[in-house]
Amino acid sequence: MSHPVRWGILGAAKIVEAEMGPAMLRSRRNTVRAVASRRLPAAEKLAADLDAPAAYDSYDRLLADPEVDAVYVATPNALHADWAVAALDAGKHVLCEKPMAMSADEVRRMNAAAQRNGRVLMEAFMWRFHPRVERVLDLLAAGAVGDVRLVRSTYTFDLAAAGDVRSGSVDDDLRLNADLGGGVVSDLGAYCVSGLRTYAGGRPVSVHSWKHSAPGRAVETTASGQIAFDNGVTGQFFAALDVPGGGLVEILGTRGRIRMTNAFRIRAAQAPFDIERQHADGSWTTESTPFHDQYEAEIDHFAAVVRDGIPPRITPQDALANALTLDAVRRSWTEGEVTVCER
């Protein structure tokens, strides 16, 4: 086995503390070299928790560290593009938290930087690395539900009831900060669109979407919409930051349907992770899959892309396609039904 990928982490975000950092500690193919934060005490604490030898008070200092092979960009959404490009230009591979950026133009700029520097750039959609996803795609390819006609994707979360904001006030949460790229579409909606695109198996051609902002909020807290795909599949999504529930995906075909709860972010306590399937005669069967750490699988896959040269599961083209669709979702709020740009 090749030597581990040495990571530098940009941002002491909660996802690093709770999910990605511990996954890097568990992985034999990855190790944390450095953490950077605008607040040095935060970087030092997280570095200590992750057994990282270096903590920096600026992102530039981390990018200058010759011992860092790859960078995990966990900054606020609005900063993803600039810091991913800076990392790529510094010769680092990049795993960038979703959404890859705030627009397709920014994703194009990031992809161009990866190409000119010969480095790997991948969007961090950890849900794509659970074996249940590949099992469902295999079932669809085998015609288990006939021809797919409709895919529904729902992801909701009651931010105010979660109690996971460090300051204790939901008003301080980055997901509600317009200047930093907040809003439900960048957060949960990005998963919904990625899910629709993955299971529909076609290219989005048009979108009609609606949004709602809770009183006093500068960003959209609810978004819904319908996406038409070039293969005749219809996609429907609903995402909200003030509704409990979690992730749900339903796939309806001419000979049955598939239903999955906990469709995106999973925890061990939620196991088993079922694939509920309705057959043409109306009967239901359930196929269960065990817990699988999506974050560890994601970074192990990234290490294999970097060290072994395997193709990335989430390609630059896929990240661009998701960004183009999210752009169309946002344009639709003022323009009605809109066409999704092809590239």
Results as ranks from 00 to 15, higher is better:
residue 291 F to P: 14
residue 16 V to S: 08
residue 256 G to C: 09
residue 189 G to A: 00
residue 171 D to A: 14
residue 332 S to Q: 01
residue 253 G to P: 09
residue 136 V to K: 07
residue 334 T to V: 10
residue 110 M to P: 14
residue 10 L to S: 02
residue 258 I to M: 12
residue 26 R to Y: 01
residue 206 S to F: 11
residue 29 R to S: 08
residue 115 Q to F: 00
residue 109 R to Y: 07
residue 71 V to P: 03
residue 236 Q to D: 12
residue 135 R to K: 13
residue 147 D to N: 12
residue 296 E to R: 07
residue 150 L to Y: 08
residue 91 G to I: 13
residue 39 R to E: 15
residue 271 A to F: 04
residue 250 E to K: 13
residue 284 W to G: 00
residue 11 G to T: 03
residue 59 Y to E: 02
residue 17 E to S: 09
residue 195 G to L: 14
residue 97 E to T: 05
residue 176 L to V: 14
residue 119 R to P: 02
residue 289 T to W: 05
residue 33 R to L: 03
residue 295 Y to L: 08
residue 114 A to C: 13
residue 173 D to R: 00
residue 152 R to H: 09
residue 253 G to H: 07
residue 267 R to V: 08
residue 136 V to E: 06
residue 242 D to P: 00
residue 150 L to H: 09
residue 61 R to P: 02
residue 184 V to D: 00
residue 64 A to M: 06
residue 229 F to I: 11
residue 218 A to P: 15
residue 52 A to W: 02
residue 266 I to D: 04
residue 297 A to E: 04
residue 304 A to V: 03
residue 21 G to Q: 07
residue 174 L to F: 13
residue 62 L to Q: 02
residue 94 V to D: 03
residue 40 L to D: 10
residue 147 D to G: 10
residue 242 D to I: 06
residue 279 H to A: 11
residue 215 P to Y: 13
residue 14 K to V: 08
residue 189 G to H: 11
residue 342 E to D: 10
residue 175 R to N: 09
residue 111 N to K: 07
residue 189 G to L: 04
residue 233 V to W: 00
residue 131 P to N: 11
residue 295 Y to W: 15
residue 283 S to L: 07
residue 286 T to D: 06
residue 273 F to V: 06
residue 248 L to S: 08
residue 84 A to C: 01
residue 53 P to R: 04
residue 34 A to H: 00
residue 89 D to W: 01
residue 201 G to Y: 03
residue 241 L to C: 01
residue 337 E to S: 03
residue 191 Y to K: 13
residue 48 A to V: 06
residue 37 S to I: 02
residue 161 A to D: 05
residue 329 V to H: 05
residue 334 T to Q: 12
residue 175 R to I: 08
residue 341 C to H: 15
residue 257 R to W: 13
residue 215 P to N: 11
residue 202 G to R: 06
residue 30 N to F: 01
residue 101 A to R: 02
residue 195 G to R: 13
residue 14 K to N: 12
residue 236 Q to Y: 03
residue 326 L to D: 00
residue 229 F to D: 07
residue 137 L to M: 07
residue 234 T to Q: 14
residue 229 F to T: 04
residue 327 D to A: 09
residue 298 E to Y: 15
residue 42 A to F: 01
residue 209 S to F: 10
residue 50 L to G: 12
residue 266 I to H: 02
residue 7 W to H: 02
residue 227 I to W: 12
residue 57 D to R: 08
residue 145 V to N: 01
residue 254 T to L: 08
residue 128 R to G: 01
residue 86 A to S: 07
residue 111 N to L: 12
residue 297 A to M: 04
residue 161 A to H: 07
residue 306 V to N: 05
residue 307 R to K: 14
residue 90 A to Y: 03
residue 85 V to C: 02
residue 147 D to E: 13
residue 214 A to Y: 13
residue 307 R to V: 02
residue 295 Y to I: 05
residue 130 H to D: 14
residue 201 G to N: 09
residue 285 T to N: 06
residue 112 A to Y: 04
residue 177 N to K: 10
residue 317 Q to E: 15
residue 323 A to Y: 14
residue 34 A to C: 08
residue 167 S to R: 02
residue 149 R to W: 04
residue 26 R to S: 15
residue 248 L to V: 12
residue 316 P to Y: 03
residue 252 L to E: 13
residue 85 V to N: 00
residue 114 A to D: 09
residue 91 G to N: 06
residue 161 A to S: 10
residue 121 L to W: 15
residue 281 D to C: 06
residue 99 P to H: 06
residue 137 L to T: 03
residue 208 H to N: 13
residue 78 A to V: 05
residue 167 S to Y: 03
residue 19 E to M: 12
residue 149 R to D: 04
residue 23 A to P: 01
residue 259 R to M: 10
residue 216 G to V: 09
residue 54 A to G: 07
